[in-house]
Amino acid sequence: MNRLYVDSVMKAFDTKQVLTDVYLTCEPGEIVGLLGRNGSGKSTLLKIIFGSLKADQKYIKVDNTQIFRLYDSSKLITYLPQDNFLPGHVRIKTIISAYCNRENAVILKKLSQLKPLLNRKARNLSSGEKRFVEILLIIHSDAKYILIDEPFNGVAPLYIDYIKQLIREQAVNKGFIITDHDYRNILDVASKIILLHDGGTREITDREELVQWGYVSGTVDG
């Protein structure tokens, strides 16, 4: 079956057990919103799925391929980390050519928001501009499953709706797992909500459950 399957993930840092009972799936066409308090292990889980962080135990499969390490996820999963990762010494147009296939590279290079940045080196961009470029690159990558850690952090409000629209468009053929502390935007864009609580995952079917699990206080809007 075509899906990203994540089960039995366990991870401890020193004596702190961060992940104990993780189960989630993501299919092409799905946008999974991963919510959780600070330190609940959201970024840790995304890194484990991507393969850049070793888990104490895990069972991760993409379609029929089991993911043991980073190399196995190549071309199947891309991951946008919290921190900027663009190489400062490279021009944006070259970065786009390296990341995207020819068709998507043409689309990105024609975007009015990116045109003024194309000939600039990544180190000369502001943090917000870098983040915007990174999100566009990841969303337009060839991978079947895309993991995004805090996409809306530091991005101008003007671009947030645009990014959500792009994610919805690209999710026709791809699966997305997105986490962000701005939970309203996650609730808005996600087709499935997963809450990380006490090291385990809970699927949220009713937004009021977020209050019951203690993730937000009061009524959930958005």
């Binding site: 991507f50 850049s52 980073l70 190399y71 190549s74 891309t78 980390p81 990762f85």
Partner: peptide, 16 residues
């Protein structure tokens, strides 16, 4: 100095 930049290359299919 820039361990975070590894992720750029990981996404291209190049591991450490």
């Amino acid at each position: 100095r820039n361990p975070g930049q590894y992720y750029f290359y990981y996404n291209l299919g190049l591991n450490k």
